[in-house]
Computed example of a mutant assay.
Amino acid sequence: MKIAIIVRRETLDKCTGKGCLNAFFRRIDAFARYGDDAELVAFTQDGGDLEHKIARLKQLGVDVVHLSSCIRGKSPHYEDLAKKLAKDFAVVGYTHGPYRGRTRDAICLPRGDRKTAPIP
């Protein structure tokens, strides 16, 4: 299982990524569903050329994209970004902390050609 994490650009200006990376490497919160074979192959931010990033993630063989908890909490484009990514990847709309956020629950979407969503 190949995983990518996308974080909020504005948050990354101040953030070290510790929360997202800690959750992945400890297999807690949004990453508790994965075994030892899960591989983090990309850690990037939501700014810049998103189409280029999507193409590169596809080349890397990414199966699931996790949107960081800061995107869920602070980005007005959270739902649109999740839907766009779900055309090519399963999407889990948080990384660390609970599935139920302060302002909204995480979005979990299957890749566009699948019938079932990833389990929250």
Rank of each mutant, 00 (worst) to 15 (best):
V92M: 14
A23V: 06
I54M: 12
V41G: 00
Q45R: 11
A117Q: 07
A32P: 03
D105R: 09
T95D: 13
V92S: 08
P76V: 13
K58L: 12
D105S: 13
C20R: 10
Y34L: 02
L109G: 03
C108F: 11
A106P: 06
V41I: 02
H52F: 08
V64L: 03
L109V: 13
E10F: 04
K74D: 10
C70F: 08
L60K: 13
I71C: 01
C15G: 07
D13Y: 13
R9P: 01
A42F: 02
V41D: 01
T103E: 11
K115P: 05
I5H: 08
F43G: 04
I54H: 06
D63R: 00
R56I: 00
G17T: 00
R27E: 12
P110C: 00
S69T: 15
V91S: 01
F89W: 10
I5K: 04
K115E: 12
D113C: 11
L81N: 06
V62T: 03
L67G: 08
G19E: 15
K74G: 10
K53S: 09
K2Y: 11
G47L: 00
H96N: 13
V7E: 13
F43C: 04
A42Y: 00
L40C: 01
V92E: 08
Q59L: 09
G35P: 10
S69Y: 09
C108K: 06
A117L: 03
D88K: 03
K83E: 12
G101V: 11
Y99F: 15
K74F: 11
T103F: 13
C15H: 08
I28V: 15
K84Y: 02
Y94F: 15
D13N: 15
V65K: 08
G35D: 13
C108T: 05
D63M: 04
I28E: 15
E79D: 12
V41F: 01
A30H: 07
Y94L: 04
N22S: 15
C20Q: 09
G47H: 06
R26H: 15
R9S: 13
I107Y: 04
S75N: 03
L12R: 15
P110K: 00
F43H: 01
F25S: 02
L109M: 07
R114M: 08
I28C: 14
R33D: 06
A42D: 12
D46G: 03
K87G: 05
T44A: 05
G73D: 14
I3H: 14
G47T: 10
G101C: 07
N22R: 14
A23Q: 03
T16M: 10
A23D: 08
R26M: 14
V92R: 03
F25H: 10
L50Q: 02
A117R: 11
N22M: 14
F43V: 05
D29M: 07
V91F: 04
G17S: 04
L50M: 11
T44M: 11
V62S: 06
R111M: 05
A30Q: 08
R27G: 12
F31Q: 05
K53W: 10
G19T: 07
V65W: 02
D29P: 01
F43R: 02
G48K: 07
Y78F: 14
I107R: 01
K18M: 10
A38Q: 00
R114Y: 13
A86I: 06
D37A: 10
N22E: 15
